[in-house]
Amino acid sequence: GQVNVNNTTYTFPTPKLAKEFAQKAAKKYNLTVHVSGNTVTVK
């Protein structure tokens, strides 16, 4: 799974890890998680 945070893309071996990372990043920066297919964007 891929996660985009502040124009930086992070790649994870599983969608589960990507989702967990996205949720932590969203909480940390007070942003929202947007899911589109296999790509998760935090903005």
Rank of each mutant, 00 (worst) to 15 (best):
K43P: 05
V33W: 03
K43D: 08
A26S: 09
Q2K: 12
T39R: 08
P13G: 05
T41W: 06
S36D: 13
K28R: 10
K24G: 04
P13D: 09
A22S: 03
F21W: 15
H34A: 09
T9P: 02
T39Q: 09
F12I: 00
V40P: 00
G37C: 02
P13H: 05
V40T: 01
N38S: 08
L17M: 12
K24C: 15
F21H: 01
Y29I: 06
A18S: 01
V5Q: 12
K28L: 14
A25S: 04
L31M: 09
N6W: 15
A25F: 15
F21R: 01
K19G: 05
N4H: 13
G1I: 13
N6F: 15
F21E: 01
N38A: 07
E20G: 04
K19H: 11
S36K: 10
N38W: 02
T32H: 09
T39S: 06
N7H: 15
Y10T: 02
P13T: 07
T8G: 08
K16P: 02
Q23S: 09
V42P: 00
N4E: 10
P13A: 12
T39K: 09
A25D: 01
N30L: 06
N4M: 10
T11K: 07
K28Q: 10
S36C: 09
T8W: 15
V40Y: 04
Y10N: 02
V42F: 07
N6H: 15
T39I: 10
K19I: 11
V5P: 11
H34R: 06
A22V: 02
T14R: 02
V33F: 08
T32Q: 10
V42I: 15
Y29S: 08
F21M: 03
T32A: 09
K24Y: 14
F21K: 01
G1E: 10
V42Y: 03
T8E: 09
H34L: 14
T41L: 06
A18N: 00
L31K: 04
T11G: 02
V33Y: 06
Y29Q: 07
V40G: 00
K24E: 07
F12W: 02
H34Y: 13
N38M: 05
A25W: 15
T32K: 08
N4R: 12
N38E: 03
N4Q: 11
N7K: 14
Q2I: 12
L31D: 05
T11A: 04
K27N: 08
H34M: 13
F21T: 01
T32N: 08
G37V: 03
G1Y: 07
N30F: 08
V42Q: 01
V42N: 00
V40R: 00
K19R: 13
T8D: 09
G37I: 02
A25E: 03
L31A: 08
L31S: 04
V3E: 12
E20T: 05
K19L: 14
K16N: 06
T11Y: 14
Y29G: 09
K24S: 06
T41F: 07
T9S: 09
K43R: 11
K19E: 13
K19A: 10
A22Y: 02
A26T: 09
T41K: 04
H34T: 15
K27A: 09
T39H: 05
V35Y: 04
K27S: 08
A26M: 13
V3G: 13
Q23P: 00
L31G: 05
A22D: 00
Q2H: 12
N38H: 05
P13V: 05
K28T: 05
N7W: 15
A22F: 02
T41G: 02
Q23T: 10
V3P: 11
K43H: 14
A18V: 01
Q23F: 08
V3I: 12
V40I: 04
K28Y: 15
N30D: 06
K16Q: 13
V35S: 02
T41S: 05
T14M: 02
V40F: 03
P13F: 04
A26G: 05
Y10P: 01
L31T: 07
N30Q: 07
T41R: 04
V5W: 12
K28I: 12
K28A: 06
Q23I: 12
A18R: 00
P15S: 11
T9R: 08
K27T: 08
N38Y: 03
Y29R: 08
Q2W: 07
K27Y: 07
Y10Q: 02
F21Y: 05
V40S: 00
V5F: 12
Q2E: 11
A25L: 15
A26K: 14
Y29K: 09
S36N: 11
Q23W: 10
K43N: 10
